[in-house]
Design a protein around this nucleic acid. Structure first.
Length: 475
RNA sequence: CGGGGUAUAGCAAAGUUGGCUAUUGCGCUCGGUUUGGGACCGAGAGGCCGCAGGUUCGAGUCCUGCUACCCCGACCA
């Protein structure tokens, strides 16, 4: 593994090294597509399971819609089409024959779902409709990186339909807060949340809310989004209902999603010079046991002891892996599990055994000894501590790297030297935002939901404003 | 799609003005010694030198074309 820190200029290389050495994913034969390997997929399964349960608690049901979207359906909503058409994969042949109508491999499922919703929804009694699907989508991106941006990726997409704009807005907020809480509680990731600027809003949406995380190289990454779709799609797809007064109305819709990119986000936010660092809640192995011995007699005693520890910890629902391999040395194992980000390593050798102790190494810091008898009490506590500590460190990093600027020059200076978020008063137009992007590569990541109580001067135009925005360079 | 770069074993590389059986390290297999921070010795297996043409007695090496991938931009979750 290249010995570069996540803060260094070679961050891109460090990232690729971590993905490879931690055995998360491989390249495939198709450019931009990746093979998610067992260790990486296990992480995704923990993310899925937890988020799925939170989605269901919100009264949302799972469904599955087809991979293919008839071209005419995608064309139905103009803004949406313009946003996605350039990056669509299109199937023109099937069964050896040219198709009468090309099929789009879904880049997202609004169009195919909403065409069906128009059949499902007739009355206000059919609302709200809340569904979600776990699926793969394809977007023909020009530049890809494992997890952070791949041609095909996995995600969940939630889609809800409501009778009023207010009801839809509540759902948009709920989804955003679900992501925010999930990121914090489960992934130890603090995120900034707020509205996207018009330029960054989802194609066809009224407005887009987002969660933005800060990577260790000072760049920012969109981790999950929630869109208020207004009645745009409802009008294009005839999603209508009769209200209590027998009046036919267009419905109000939302969509929200979180993808495998979140794994990349965990890597760039928690990783260090030794490799991956996993929050315990998504670690495939929360504890790895490494035996150290010379003689067969020692091996027998140490294996017995470790098997006992494994059983005791597993009874507490802790995911334990006993590394029994005799083909590699303990030193090799130490490094391998560090690269793979395992939260706790427990070593047991003859010296420890004599004192009825084990050597415990925390991936996020200390190494210390513990009496074997204390493990059942201590290990769950240490796992919690690691989960908390990662959040604390990331929160501090986010705080330290969120700065203010009073001019464009000052913003660029900070971005060049340190990166991070730059909080500024803003009254610019879409064109002025584009101009800043062209000159500085920074975009408005979020508009602060909290308005200033006093009048401020826009850092770029000098115009009066009460709006604050966060600029950053993003992935 | 623009700019730059690279294609030699699973991975990383060397290969001189064209010359003999294509080399080295890591990894892999077998045997032995090891084992508290990526062990050591010995013996092996593994190659369409990216693809297609051309020049030549002779091409990994020179020429032409193609393709793929990587990096930097534009596009994006």
């Amino acid at each position: 593994m290249t010995k570069i820190t996540p803060q260094s200029k070679d961050f891109a290389q460090w990232y690729l090294d971590v993905v490879k050495e931690a055995d998360l994913a491989d390249y495939s034969k198709v450019k931009g597509c990746m093979i998610i390997k067992p260790y990486g997929y296990a992480i995704w399964e923990f993310i899925q399971a937890e988020l799925n349960s939170r989605i269901k608690k919100a009264g949302v049901q799972n469904v599955y819609f087809p991979l293919f979207i008839p071209e005419s359906l995608l064309n139905r909503e103009k803004e949406h089409l313009e946003g996605f058409a350039p990056e669509c994969a299109v199937v023109t042949h099937g069964g050896g024959k040219k198709l009468a109508e090309p099929l789009i491999v879904r880049p997202t499922s609004e169009t195919i779902m909403y065409d069906t919703f128009s059949d499902w929804i007739h009355s206000y009694r059919d609302l709200p409709l809340k569904i979600n699907q776990w699926a793969n989508v394809v977007r023909w991106e020009m530049r890809t990186r494992p997890f952070l941006r791949t041609t095909e990726f996995l995600w969940q997409e939630g889609h809800t339909v409501h009778a009023t704009s207010e009801d839809a807005a509540v759902e948009v907020d709920r989804a955003l807060n679900m992501y925010k809480d999930f990121d914090r509680d489960f992934l130890s990731l603090p995120v900034l949340t707020g509205k996207k600027s018009r330029k960054e809003t989802f194609a066809g949406a009224l407005y887009t809310l987002t969660t933005e995380a800060l990577a260790k190289d000072g760049k920012v990454i969109q981790a999950g989004t929630s869109h208020h779709l207004g009645q745009t799609f409802a009008k294009s797809f005839n999603v209508t209902f009769q209200d209590q007064n027998s009046v036919v109305q267009h419905a109000w819709q939302t969509s929200w999603g979180l993808s495998t990119r979140i794994i990349g986000t965990v890597i760039v936010c928690h990783g260090d010079e030794k490799g991956l660092v996993l929050p315990p809640k998504i670690a495939p192995h929360q504890v790895v046991l490494v035996p150290i011995f010379k003689t067969d007699e020692e091996k027998t005693r140490i294996f017995d002891e470790l098997n006992g520890i494994k059983e005791a910890l597993e009874a507490l629902n802790i995911r334990v892996h006993f590394d029994e391999r005799d083909t590699v040395t303990p030193g090799y194992k130490f490094n391998e599990w560090e690269v793979k980000g395992v939260p706790i390593r427990i070593d047991l050798g003859p010296r420890d055994l004599e004192k009825s102790e084990v050597t415990v190494t925390r991936r996020d810091g200390d190494k210390f000894n513990l009496p074997i008898g204390d493990l059942e009490q201590e290990v769950p506590y240490i796992l919690d501590k690691i989960q908390e500590n990662l959040l604390e460190k990331a929160t501090l990093f986010l705080k330290e790297n969120t700065r203010e600027a009073s001019s464009l020059e000052e913003m660029v200076k900070i971005l060049d030297e340190k990166g991070g978020f730059i909080k500024v008063p803003w009254a610019g137009t879409d064109e002025e935002e584009k101009k800043i992007q062209d000159e500085t590569k920074a975009t408005i990541r979020i508009i602060d939901p909290i308005k200033s109580t006093e009048k401020l001067k826009c850092f770029f135009t000098g115009r009066e404003t009460d709006t604050l925005v966060y600029f950053a360079r993003a992935y």
